[in-house]
Simulated assay, not measured.
Amino acid sequence: MTDRAPWGKTYSDLWRHPKWVQLEAGPRALWVTALSWTVESRTFGAIPTPMLAMFRASEEDAAELVRVGLWDATKDGWQLHDWDHHQTSREKFTATSKARAVSGSRGGKARHAKSTRKSVTSDDRQIAKQTASNRQAEVEVEVEELLPPTPQGELLAATAPRPRGFVYPDSFELWWKTWPKKGDTKKTAFAAWEKAVKGNRRQAARVTAEHLQAAVEAYAADRNLPEQQFIPLATTWLNQDRWENGPLPPRGGSRGGPQAGDTGRAMAQSYDAARAYEALEQSGYYDQTPPLALTRRIA
């Protein structure tokens, strides 16, 4: 008998919670879709970066969920915030599965004794009765209360727009001016920058503003910096601590590019590599030291 897919539950006041009302439709849809997937897949809140493409979501949507505190950024993607506190932990799920296995084994023995007309003791009857009761109560991975109810005053304070005179810190403005990718989202980039520099209640600061500035200046000036479409989003660069990566690998390979007489073949390989590199970047599979074949370009 195969296990049925478990149910996921959310708290009844989710629609008016401060974290939720700050989000647009895209991040909301991503949160619900990811919750459904991780419950069915039993990843216990872990969401690998490539799943964004499957969910038809963007990194900006994910960054918004991190900003409001519904997701936590990890090395391999994201984690639903406080999974063990709000939902069924891996340990509880494992214990329940083992209990079901033991109960099912005992129930099978009791049924076998009955079918072969052997004498059945009172203990056997009690075991069979308990097994039937367990089957009737479908085992579910219960997603418990997602968020606690909040006073109306806290809701209004959390959702109030920024003051008209809000100004980004000078250190971030300098970092943003240096960031080499055009068309990035400043609002989400600032949220990721601030989390890295200042931390929050759940995570300490990971880097200083001075170190980040030096790193972005080196990154922007790197002679091997790829074309605009291959530069990662600012939020991705910050959330994945890519300031620690060091210099970029050579774009032309160790031999300095294609040899004479191989121009046509080199152009075809470069085109294919560029498309593959772009697909990997969009899906989240961005390796800190990508294979040489994916970094070759025509000089």
Rank of each mutant, 00 (worst) to 15 (best):
A205D: 06
T150R: 10
V167R: 13
T159H: 10
A218I: 00
A209G: 01
A214E: 09
K177H: 13
A158K: 14
A158V: 03
T159S: 15
W193H: 01
V139F: 09
T185D: 15
W175K: 01
G165C: 03
A158G: 07
E210K: 13
L174Y: 08
E194F: 08
P169L: 00
E145L: 12
G153T: 14
K181N: 07
T188N: 11
Y168R: 07
L174T: 14
G165T: 07
R162H: 04
R201V: 06
E145T: 13
E194M: 08
V216E: 02
S133E: 11
A192S: 12
E145N: 12
A218Q: 11
P163M: 04
T150E: 11
A128Y: 05
T208Y: 06
F190E: 04
W176K: 12
N200A: 02
R202S: 06
A221W: 04
W179V: 03
Q152G: 13
R201Q: 13
D170N: 07
R162M: 02
T178F: 10
E194A: 15
A189Y: 03
A128V: 00
P151W: 05
T188V: 10
S133H: 08
E210S: 15
Q203S: 15
N134H: 09
Q152V: 09
A215M: 04
G153E: 14
Y168Q: 00
Y168E: 04
T150G: 01
L155N: 03
V139Q: 14
V207E: 07
V207W: 05
E173H: 02
Q203D: 12
A157N: 08
R223M: 09
K129F: 07
L146D: 14
P163Q: 04
A191Y: 04
E142I: 11
E154V: 05
N134Q: 11
H211V: 10
E173L: 10
R164K: 12
Q136M: 09
L174K: 15
A205M: 02
F166T: 03
T208Q: 06
P161N: 03
P169Q: 03
L155Y: 08
K186Y: 07
G183C: 06
S171C: 06
K198D: 11
